[in-house]
Amino acid sequence: MSQADKDTTDFGYKEVPKGDKVKHVADVFHSVAAKYDVMNDLMSGGVHRIWKKLTIEQSGARAGMKVLDIAGGTGDLTLRFSRIVGSSGRVTLADINDSMLKVGRDKLTDKGAIANIEFVQANAECLPFPDNHFDIITIAFGLRNVTDKDAALRSMQRVLKPGGKLMVLEFSKTDNPMLSSVYDFYSFNILPKLGQIIAGDGDSYQYLAESIRMHPDQETLKSMMIAADFVNCKFQNMTGGVVALHTGIKP
């Protein structure tokens, strides 16, 4: 049975009614928004900056392009894209969660990045943009929180220009047993405690660890992208597969 045919969906290790996942995920991000950047740096030891930098470099972004950063959160990718596309380009930061959007907007305003950025509260499954509109779409650490990932990929395909590039940066599966066991221990024993101490919310970080395990592995996500009519789909593992960068082109 495909994801679209079921009435329930995963929320971490729990099965919840499809309609409820958005609310559950929203609660998680409302709770952690204020400490999101600090937690990212702490959890990954700053390595998330390298993953994002590699994504930017492989995007092929240049001056004048239109870029959509879905689940853009606190705007790390948006900030870098806005500098590359310049005044003749445009970056749209879309996030379903208004708390994250507010934190992102404040952060980017403080950094002086406002002229070529717009902020849109949007659900990735039904993006409120015209067809064939963007040159590049990125979704970094967001796809696993989407209820219907197939619908989201189809929606991204629709708003992307022919020849445009989709980039999905997401936690994935390691194929190294040693790394896997260390990673599991870290995710389920240390991460929730860090979340409790720093963000005052251990449950949200328990969900983070569970949602990563429930997210499709590299090959499955690649086949989902192909099914959504992307071509030249490929993925690049980073940090031993802890994170993978999937790319696909709209034909």
Partner: peptide, 16 residues
């Protein structure tokens, strides 16, 4: 090297 108002960005790769 990609200059912008307030600094520079450095990249190893640029496909244009």
């Amino acid at each position: 090297l990609l200059p912008y108002g307030g600094g520079i960005a450095l990249q190893q790769q640029f496909d244009a």
